Simulated assay, not measured.
Amino acid sequence: MRVAVTGTPGTGKTTATDLVASPLDVLHLNDAIRAEGFHEGEDPDRGSLYADLDALAAWVDERANERGTDGLLLESHLAHRLDADRVVVLRCRPAEVERRLTERGEPPAKARENAEAEALDVILAEAVERHGADAVYEIDTTDLHPEAVAREIEAVVAGDREPSAGGVDFTDYL
């Protein structure tokens, strides 16, 4: 089984997936993009890489074959763009996303852009479009400790949580 954990930067994906107790192997896709060179240059305005998703998908398939498993937990704001059986979309109040990103050194314009994307459900909409609402599990992380988010992800992996897409609404931020 492949489970993608995705969401706007600043929603807690890396922190939570590092705490997940699961038989699935965790792959931090952003690390692979940088380390393996799965990109086609950098956006000069945002300081982010243009990911080569085809190369990344092939690399994920190779990791699965090497490990003799398809049991992967894929973590990245791009994870929903790859093949997955279930997609966990972490959500967070846009003002909190903006605060977290600014605190970790992102330029204010980039933090604001990500907060607006969160308010507009950009990643959720992409996940539902690619995988269908029956495969998407939305988790609002705003007031949850990372351990609680990890337990929610574990429930998705175990099949103990029902799909949920569209229950979180941050449009009041706009």
Rank of each mutant, 00 (worst) to 15 (best):
residue 4 A to C: 03
residue 4 A to S: 06
residue 4 A to H: 04
residue 12 G to I: 00
residue 14 T to W: 00
residue 15 T to D: 04
residue 16 A to I: 00
residue 18 D to H: 09
residue 19 L to C: 01
residue 19 L to P: 04
residue 19 L to S: 05
residue 22 S to T: 13
residue 22 S to A: 02
residue 27 L to T: 06
residue 27 L to W: 03
residue 28 H to F: 07
residue 29 L to N: 00
residue 30 N to I: 00
residue 32 A to Q: 10
residue 32 A to Y: 11
residue 35 A to Y: 06
residue 39 H to M: 11
residue 39 H to F: 14
residue 41 G to Q: 12
residue 47 G to F: 12
residue 50 Y to P: 07
residue 51 A to W: 11
residue 54 D to A: 14
residue 55 A to Q: 07
residue 65 N to I: 13
residue 67 R to T: 14
residue 70 D to L: 06
residue 73 L to Y: 11
residue 74 L to C: 11
residue 74 L to A: 09
residue 76 S to F: 12
residue 80 H to M: 02
residue 84 A to G: 12
residue 84 A to Q: 08
residue 87 V to Y: 07
residue 87 V to H: 02
residue 88 V to N: 04
residue 100 R to M: 05
residue 102 T to H: 10
residue 103 E to H: 01
residue 103 E to A: 13
residue 106 E to M: 05
residue 106 E to N: 02
residue 111 A to S: 13
residue 112 R to K: 07
residue 113 E to C: 04
residue 116 E to S: 02
residue 116 E to I: 13
residue 118 E to T: 09
residue 119 A to M: 05
residue 122 V to T: 14
residue 127 A to S: 15
residue 128 V to F: 02
residue 131 H to V: 08
residue 132 G to M: 09
residue 134 D to M: 08
residue 138 E to A: 05
residue 141 T to G: 01
residue 152 E to Q: 15
residue 163 P to Q: 15
residue 164 S to F: 11
residue 166 G to E: 12
residue 169 D to L: 12
residue 171 T to E: 15
residue 172 D to V: 15
residue 174 L to A: 11
